[in-house]
Nucleic acid binder design. Sequence first.
DNA 1: AAACGTAACTTGCGAAATGCAAGTAATAAA
DNA 2: TTTATTACTTGCATTTCGCAAGTTACGTTT
Lengths: 122, 122
Amino acid sequence: MLGDRWSLLIVRDMMLLGFRTYKEFMECYEGIATNILADRLRKLVAHGILTTEADPADGRKMIYSLTAKGIALAPVLTEMVLWAAGHEKTGNQELVQQMRADKAKFLAGVRERWKGRQSIRA
Amino acid sequence: MLGDRWSLLIVRDMMLLGFRTYKEFMECYEGIATNILADRLRKLVAHGILTTEADPADGRKMIYSLTAKGIALAPVLTEMVLWAAGHEKTGNQELVQQMRADKAKFLAGVRERWKGRQSIRA
DNA sequence: AAACGTAACTTGCGAAATGCAAGTAATAAA
DNA sequence: TTTATTACTTGCATTTCGCAAGTTACGTTT
């Protein structure tokens, strides 16, 4: 269900970088095909990890949100980031430091930031 | 590097179910193609997550072992199992109970069980 | 209001990855 | 010495993917 090249990256970057729109994903990932991005977003919604809603401020935009189930992936992603930081060359050392310094606090922060940002339709 | 359908399952089942040989993986996973299994094992070795060595007791067998880098994936896999258990229908509730009851103890147990079982070539 | 730009897609096509069936080589068991 | 087992490889059809080029709906500029 998350066992492909892009799905977890999408969730990670929503959670850690605050991505919310198609365009943000498209511009961030080199190599992702636009049909694949659309497909992955659709599947993540179908699996109850994301929701979509139209942006009230701009009718062209769709806003993606993490559901509770999606936010619950935070510990998985945190451990993955920490593993990668310890065993591979990775960027965003600042984030890694935060995670390492106090994991529980970091996770609480993630959950706090997503409070209220979730769409009504859980 | 782990972003495909099988790699993490292979590591998970080595870690949690004690799989060590090609045959064990082949019989366990429905749908995995034998060339793909060979390819994934090769790539995991190339990435330093596994090592291979001939079984001294049976010349036909190759024994796969987790490296320190592979064992370091334990927290990732644990969080994934817990997430899946909480949000999807999964099996092996006994294991899940153990993880939930005392995560640190569970992880210590995993590391302990793999002590000495690693091949000489780290 | 006409023209242009932008966001989120879909479609078509060649290339790469995958699943499946059928080998093969080395070793072990009968 | 024949048969079984283990760990693969090879060939081929199917599926998935990356890339380029639309398409549709909306927003912005003039």
